Structure formats: structure tokens, C-alpha cells
Amino acid sequence: MLTFIRFAAVAASLLLLPLGSFGPSPDAIVATAEQAASPVTKLAPQARRAVAAFGAEFGLAAANAHVPESGLAVGQTADDFRDWLRASPAHRAELSRFRSYLAAQGVEAVVPMWQLVRTSSSWKECAAEPFETPPADKWDHIVKTLQFVRDNVVPAVGQVEPLSAYRNEGLNSCSNGAPKSAHRHFFALDLTPLDTKVARADMIRSVCAAHAREGQAYDTGLGFYSGRRFHVDSSGYRKWGPNGKGATSPCVGQA
């Protein structure tokens, strides 16, 4: 009973929030809520729409279960995003405008929106924000990166999750990012495959092949970190390894 009351209270508060102008139809939203295995299914239709729309607007329906090796930093989960979004009306307004821009470019659904505004894994140590909507003058930079992810990375390794995207100058410096890091201008994403069955060696082989085949056409930079985390950007065709040099890229020597 208490769980039901809490969900009802949340739904009532969400009804006060403006719904996005993009996203699933009302019928699809209701269907999503009805399929969810939670007390949301017991709410009135209008309340179900509010709960589901809040999750659908920024891709929260795709809140992924994380495994330790994903590399996700503390404080950057879906629940943390909800807290950040509710902390300021400006956050929601800025992110809604960004979402509309990506939708117009046809890349809104490549990865969940809420993951696309994760900052650095070192955000807490640097006294920064775990999420940040990039400045509008940099939005166009991520479009080609998302196109490469959609057209080449996803077919190679399946759906991927962004772990880090835009980093402002101060955060980039504090988190030991390269002085000319593509993250500073929102060209770059650090990604990991959602499918935990994709081994590091297989991931490298598949992504390297995609980069060799189509990377130049998308101006794609490609680097690999430890585990199953890798970097893509669209600020210049290149590849690199642990020391930042092309010769040490794990792609070298790949068939």
C-alpha cells in the first residue's frame, strides 16, 4: 500500500511538468507503462502517461543495468540523472532544446539522451557536475560522431552506452584529459558495449574493422582504454594506443 502511495505521489508531481513535444504517442506511452512490472500499472491512465512520458522523454526507459567492468562512475546512474534534472528547471529546458536539435538531425535515438550528457568519470573528484548539456554552439559537432556510431559501431558490437561525453575546459584539465581532447568541443564519446558477452578482443577487432572501412568518411578518431571502454570522435581520421600514438593502436596489424 505504501509503495502504491509513493508511486501515486510521484505521478501527481510529474503531471505538473511540461511534457516534451517529441517522443512516443500517448497510446505508446500508456502501453509502455502498462507493460512495466511496477505499481505504475495500478495508476489512473493520466498518471500513467505522466510517469511513462517522464521516462520516455530523455530515454530513461533504456536505463541499463551496469556491471562493475562497465567503467561507469559513481553518481551517473539513471536515478542520479533524475535528481540532476529535477534540481533545476534550466536543466530540463536546455536538454529539451538539445533533444529537439538531435531529432531534427535524425540522430536523437542512437543512444539514450540522458547518457549523452554524462561528463567525466572524475566529475566528483573535480567538484564538477555529473551531467551537463553541452553549449548550443557545439551541438553540431556530435552529429557525425553519432552517425558513425549508428552506422558502424552498433552493427559491429551491438548497442553501446556513453560513459563520458562533453567535458568543459576546467573539468577536462582536472580529469587529466588531453589538452586538445575532442571531448572539450563535444566531438567525442567514450563508449562500452551493452552486451556483456562481447569480449574486449572481439570488440577491438570489430570496431577496428569498422574504422578501417568507414572511419575516414566520418572523420573518426578511435582509441581504446582498459576493459571494454573505447573512444570515438569526429574531429579527424586517426587512431591511437596507450601512449597516444598511432603505432601502438590495437588496430595495427588487424586483418
Rank of each mutant, 00 (worst) to 15 (best):
V107M: 03
P162D: 04
G236N: 01
G55F: 11
L17R: 14
S206M: 09
A165G: 02
H183G: 01
L15C: 06
Q147P: 11
A199P: 13
A255H: 09
S226E: 07
A87R: 03
V198A: 02
S96M: 10
A255L: 11
V67T: 11
E94H: 13
T220R: 04
A31L: 08
A44S: 12
T119P: 00
R200K: 12
D140P: 10
V110S: 01
L116G: 02
P155F: 00
E161F: 15
L102Q: 00
V111T: 02
V143D: 00
A44W: 06
F187M: 08
A62K: 10
V143L: 00
G106F: 02
R86M: 13
F186A: 06
A255P: 14
R150I: 01
V67Y: 15
A63Q: 06
N168T: 05
E57K: 05
Q216K: 10
E129Y: 11
S121F: 14
A127R: 07
W114D: 03
A127I: 11
A44E: 05
A217V: 05
A56K: 13
A56F: 04
A53P: 06
V252F: 11
V117H: 04
L194K: 10
A28V: 06
V51I: 05
Q35L: 06
P68E: 07
F131Y: 03
Q76C: 01
Y237N: 03
S164D: 02
V153F: 00
A136K: 12
A156I: 00
A65W: 14
A165I: 05
P135Y: 04
H183V: 01
A212K: 14
T77A: 15
C174L: 07
G158R: 00
A33H: 04
A11S: 04
S175E: 13
F148G: 00
L17V: 10
V74G: 09
M113W: 07
R97Q: 09
L15G: 10
S164I: 08
S100E: 13
E169S: 12
G55W: 10
A50Q: 03
V30A: 13
A93N: 12
K138Q: 12
L95I: 12
G75Y: 11
A87K: 11
W139F: 09
T192I: 08
E125K: 10
V117M: 02
S96N: 13
G106C: 00
A78R: 11
S234V: 00
P89E: 06
R184M: 01
G75I: 07
A247Y: 10
R150Y: 00
T119I: 04
L17G: 09
L194A: 07
P89F: 11
E129Q: 13
V110M: 02
V232W: 00
L14K: 09
A47S: 14
A109V: 12
P45Q: 14
P193S: 01
H185W: 12
A78M: 07
V117A: 06
S100Y: 05
E129W: 09
T41S: 15
C208F: 00
G23L: 05
A201Q: 15
G236K: 01
R167Y: 10
R97W: 10
P26M: 08
R118G: 03
F187E: 03
R150Q: 08
L116D: 04
C208I: 05
